[in-house]
Design a protein around this nucleic acid. Structure first.
Lengths: 167, 167
DNA sequence: GACCTTTTCTTGAAAGTTGAACTAGATAGA
DNA sequence: TCTATCTAGTTCAACTTTCAAGAAAAGGTC
């Protein structure tokens, strides 16, 4: 899905420009906010924390590397580096996949789980303060719908696998 | 404004969790999408493009480093590196500030302006396809309000300077 | 089995980011 | 003036991300 600039560009309206600026502004500040909070309280960036959360919710607290990368929306390369770092910190360890000798499982360690348990309340609090405590229930509902639409539109092709009628 | 974890954590409701996941998912995909689009069509990451846009809209197409950093919501350090890179590419040049010998202006070059003019349509198109073409006018309006609220809540302290009654 | 393609994951180098330390110039007070 | 403090911007080292390249195993197909 390339962005072929056709004949005449359709510029954004004044309102759209303003909304777009607000979107960029808010998402930038939010990401900075959470990165700083987690760096301070858990010693890692937001994305790494997200990896641990994914693992904590997986059966037996482990996941194949590729699956973890897909769920966290990062490349396998990036995940390799990230897991190496988390392994050094002791929150995660690697384990050979029994059924596929190419495969690796990332496993959340007990220390990792404990760290997560300790820092979760502070993180939820940060998310709440930054977003949910400021929005009306109606706005929360609306935001959910909007984000669903946007995410669906940007879903990488691979996800077409979930749409059998396209195959 | 630290996030002191008080006695009992107030967890997110099911709906809030789902909205939060959708938010993270959508914003991650959006940022990836725009980074890729601009890397391909303009040879730079999204944030660098944003710096050039800021400069193009400033009087005489120039801005003090600190002001540019503040407007783009990045640190002065990051801006130093970014401008060094953009200078090497020829899109920006530095210029001593006449009134303050410590100061530097970042100036958008003619080449930089031309590059912006060429790549703007494709970029607007990407934004449109990813967001505005998928939302109803009502949703666009709502998104704008929500992002305003969130951004306002995360505004760094410095911006209190704009609120005289707090001084 | 031999051959080719695909999938899984890692590696290394280049590019980008961060936070702290640092230089130079501005500012304010005694 | 002299001094202390603050501000503007850069630089360094440590860390993270990206992209291209590569090793190893799996899955066809003949």
């Amino acid at each position: 899905m390339t962005t072929a600039p056709t004949g005449e560009p359709r510029w954004l309206s004044d309102e759209e420009q303003s909304v777009w600026r607000a979107y960029l502004h808010a998402t930038t500040l939010m990401e900075d906010h959470l990165d700083r909070q987690l760096q301070r309280d858990a010693g890692m960036p937001h994305i790494y924390y997200g990896l641990l959360v994914q693992l904590s919710q997986a059966p037996r607290r482990r996941k194949r590397m590729t699956e973890l990368a897909k769920d966290a929306k990062i490349t396998r390369s990036r995940l390799s580096h990230a897991v190496a770092r988390l392994e050094k910190s002791g929150w995660v360890r690697r384990e050979d996949c029994p059924s596929d000798k190419r495969g690796q499982n990332a496993v959340l360690t007990d220390d990792g789980y404990e760290m997560l348990r300790r820092s979760a309340p502070g993180h939820v609090d940060a998310v709440r303060q930054a977003m949910f405590d400021r929005l009306t229930p109606e706005q929360v509902r609306s935001l959910g719908e909007i984000m669903q639409v946007v995410a669906a539109g940007l879903q990488p092709e691979g996800t077409d696998a979930d749409l059998p009628w396209l195959r």
